[in-house]
Amino acid sequence: MIRFEKRSKSYLFAHYLWIVFRVLVAGAVLFGAIYLVFLGLGSNYTFHWEEAIQFLPFFNQGLLVTLQIAILGAILAVFLGIAVALLRLSPWGVVRDLAGAYVHTFRNLPFLVVLLLFFFGLGKAIKILPFEFLGQTYRPQFIWGVLALGVYESSYLGETFRAGIESVHKAQVEAARSLGMKYFQVLRYVVLPQAFRVILPPLTGTLIALIKESSLLYLISVQELTEAARQLAIPSRPYFFEFYTILACYYLAMVVPLSLLSNWLESRLGISRASKKVKDHG
């Protein structure tokens, strides 16, 4: 009998430790299996991890540029996204339709095509000059890349914001209006604070997507993370596998924490709202 009384907090802690252990074992098994497949099928490939790792500073420079692109792109996308969401919720049908056309066009295009259209298409018609900021020179490629990224992601964020705002019950708006608040006051004091919790998890998701999409900017020769790996991987350094594995790890290191944060926010914000359940005796 006594052995069962141990189902206490310390028991649960041991349980979590067990889960961590389990995941580690599963990882070992999975990667072990993949490695064995490599050994079995590509026996004449020798790995050069030590040489590849010496190029980490080069990767770090690329990482810095990727982070800049992601942050600037995210800021642009958030502002454009809010504008699009407000237009999509406007009282005038025509405005709603126009904003809808914007959203559907960009959502249904590959980001690559938008990027090419922006840089090689619009870039030919509208000239942007390189400029210097904080001792670093920003080339037009960088500007067009950030613009394309911001516009593209705003079509996704616009829908996220709209869903968030629509999730706030109509009665809340009516109650605020009955107090004599104006449209923007209603938004600011009643709707947005409540919409925030619905918006936050998908917002993190969009940020993740934005970091991932930013890798495409290497195609217009922006010196970001992926371009760093591409420049390293030349025939005289034939350890492509190693370089691209390192590259993947850099992205995982940026994105996995965000992904965990997004999951945590989702469960956290979900809990505070829905399940204040009264504990029931089984």
Binding site: F4, R7, L12, G282
Partner: peptide, 11 residues
């Protein structure tokens, strides 16, 4: 027969 749901002793 004894049964627990997590920390809850139900049977």
């Amino acid at each position: 027969v004894h049964k627990w749901f997590g920390l809850l002793h139900v049977l």
